[in-house]
Structure formats: C-alpha cells, structure tokens
Amino acid sequence: MNSPTVHPAQRIVDLGFGFIYSAALSAAAELGVADRLEQGPRSAASLAEELGVDARSLYRVLRLLASVEVFSEDNAGRFSLTPSADLLRTNAPGSLRSAALMLTQRIFWLPAGELVDTVRTGKDPFTRIFGAPFFDYLERDATQGAIFHRGMSSLSALENGPIAGAYDFTPLRRVVDVGGGHGGFLVEVLKAAPHVRGVLFDHRHVLAEARISEAGFAERCELVEGDFFESVPSGADAYVLKRILHDWSDEVCVRILRNCREAMTESGRVLVVDTVIPPGNGPHGGKVLDVMMLASLPGGRERTAEEFGKLFAQAGLRLSRVIHTPAALSITEAVAA
C-alpha cells in the first residue's frame, strides 16, 4: 500500500480503504485464529466450526489479510501462519495480539471517525462519545481498560530492552521511572546497569501489578506510590518519563517536568522517552500516533526536538541531546539549565 510505484489515484483509494484492513486484523486477533493455526494449515470451514462463526465470512476476512502477508492461503484454500500472523498467537515470543486488539479498540476507532470535527473545532470528541475523558473512562470501563493496558504492555515488552540498551545508565546511582507502570522498562535498566538502584513511581493500583519482584530486582528497586502531577521522589540522578508527556498538553507537561527538575540532583537529568517527529515529509510512526492522539486525548501530541526544547526551557531544563533507539521511540535528554 505504501509502494512509491503506486499510481496517485490508487494511493488515495488504498488509504480510503485502510480502515477495512484494521477491522480485519481486529477480527482475526479477537477470534484467536492464529492460535488455531499453530499446528499447521487449516481451511476456513474447519476454523469456523471450531470458533463457532460463519465460515464464508471468516474466509473472506482471512483472504484479505493473506493479501498483505498476514496469513497465507494455499491452492487448497487452507490458511497458514506467516511471520506476521505468528505474532498474533497469544503465546508467541513478542506476541502482538494484545497490541492489535488495543490499537483497534473503540476508544481510538470511534473518535478517529469524527476527525473532521476535531480539525474544525480543535476539540476532541472523546468525552462526548464516551461520557468521560480518556483516562477516566479507562478506569470506569474495566473491559476497555484491560484491553488498553495489556496492549500497552505488549508494545512495551518489545521496545524496553532496545531502548534501555541505547542509553548508558552505568554511571548513575538512582533512577526513578516516573509513571513507570508495571516496571518493565525499569527492569531492563537494572539488567543493563548492575550498580543502579531503581524507584518505580506510580499509583497504588498500578504498582499492585508491578513485575519488579518476579524479575528478581526487589532488593534493588523501591516501589513508591504517588501522583506525578504533585511531586516525584527526590534525589535521583535520572528521571525517566516513558510514554508520559505525549499524553498531555504543553502546560501539563511543563508542570510534570518542573516536578522532576525540583527533585533531581544538580548533576541529574530527565530522560523523555517518546517519539521525536523528524523534519520533512518522510513516513514516520510518530506522525500516525500524533493524529491518533489528536482524536482521542485532549492536548496529547507527539513533538519535534524543538518543541521538547521549549518545554524543557519553561521547566528550568535544557535539551542536551536526542538519542535515537532501535525502537520507534527516542530518548530526549534534558539537564539543569
């Protein structure tokens, strides 16, 4: 669909049909089709009987996905796993089934369908559609909240190691992961830097599912309850903000960054782990994510290095460098101004 040889008219048509591919991917992931192909090729009729769905409809969905190398169909009409389809298996190493369900869930789908109104007014439709702002809604709707958090954990599991390995944490003594969730990224930091002590900072209900102990780092990591809008633990060499700032407006981001600035040592630094939008018209995952944020999170956005620099300056910090990683996210480092 993104080939530079595609005719301009066909490109427009392909983009217009893009949501159909998302819908097909979501259906296959929710039904667990990939799990049932682990033992080898099967026909849509056989799969449908086991799944309790309509065989003809399932075939048409899988045929579409096979056209983009998610599953493959042989001459006998049997479907098999491809490398991409294998990632939809629940127990596959690096499984993205939860991520696929999260990216195609209605909290993103429905607001995106009203994007033109967002562009006209500058206001997202999320609260009007769901009756509450994004994160409030996820707390109220346990099902949607679970889909979202499992999906985010799935994505994070792929990227945490490469991102942590792109930064030299070894000279540091104490690292606070601000809003660090279940601690997946901090675990990778502790693996990479044996002398670092960590602090996982988040709300109580989030820390209840922390993975620090099961990863074997209970002796080197403290779990601290709190709200990063109010304050963060003091005296650390580095404060990590991974996938935090992109959720919030500039004003809110400055408040969070100021809290980190006030808490860190004079030689400390703040490490913002988010996408950094590059200049130019080239494709970049951050540009897609940015429009998703536009539709669903008021104030949420992906930023350029220059925009990060402006936020830092307002918080008493200075942009020192941007470190690109093997993942889609970059590490934007700030030190005391």
Rank of each mutant, 00 (worst) to 15 (best):
D237H: 02
L47V: 12
A55P: 07
P171R: 05
T121C: 08
S67A: 15
A164M: 14
S330V: 03
V176R: 13
S84R: 14
D177L: 00
A166Q: 07
L223M: 06
A218P: 06
D141T: 05
I244R: 01
E219Q: 05
V187E: 12
R11E: 14
A100F: 11
R173N: 10
V119I: 15
D227W: 05
R220P: 06
K123Y: 07
L115H: 13
S320P: 00
G94N: 05
T304P: 04
Y21G: 09
S154F: 09
T170Q: 13
L25K: 07
F201I: 04
L62T: 07
N75I: 08
E251V: 04
E188R: 15
G300D: 10
G216H: 12
S22W: 06
P162T: 14
S154V: 05
I129G: 14
D177N: 08
P279T: 13
V68R: 06
G179V: 05
R174V: 02
P133F: 03
N75L: 14
L329I: 00
V178H: 09
G40F: 00
L96T: 09
F217G: 00
G184A: 03
W109Q: 09
A193W: 00
V272W: 02
T325H: 08
T5N: 10
L271I: 10
A45Y: 15
D117W: 12
E114H: 14
T82C: 10
E219G: 07
R243V: 08
G32R: 13
L311M: 12
A315C: 06
G52L: 05
E302T: 01
G316P: 00
G300Q: 08
L15G: 14
F185H: 02
S153L: 13
R128I: 09
V252F: 14
L138V: 02
A208S: 10
L155C: 14
L58A: 06
A336H: 05
A315S: 11
P194F: 07
E38D: 15
M264Y: 02
A44C: 00
E302G: 01
L37A: 04
A66W: 05
A132E: 06
E38I: 15
A99V: 03
N160H: 15
V232A: 08
L65N: 08
K123C: 02
G216C: 12
F229V: 00
L200T: 07
V13P: 07
A99T: 04
H149D: 12
R220L: 00
G280C: 02
S330L: 03
A29W: 01
A263D: 11
Q105K: 10
V335I: 10
L289Y: 12
S43M: 00
V270S: 13
H246I: 11
G226A: 07
V68K: 00
P133S: 10
C221M: 04
S46V: 11
K123R: 13
L245R: 09
P8A: 09
E38G: 09
F312L: 04
A76W: 02
A55D: 06
S3W: 09
R173Q: 11
M152Y: 08
T332P: 04
R269V: 05
S95D: 02
G268K: 13
V13T: 12
R128D: 15
S320F: 01
S231Q: 12
D117S: 15
A193C: 03
V116C: 09
E139D: 07
V206S: 08
G77Y: 03
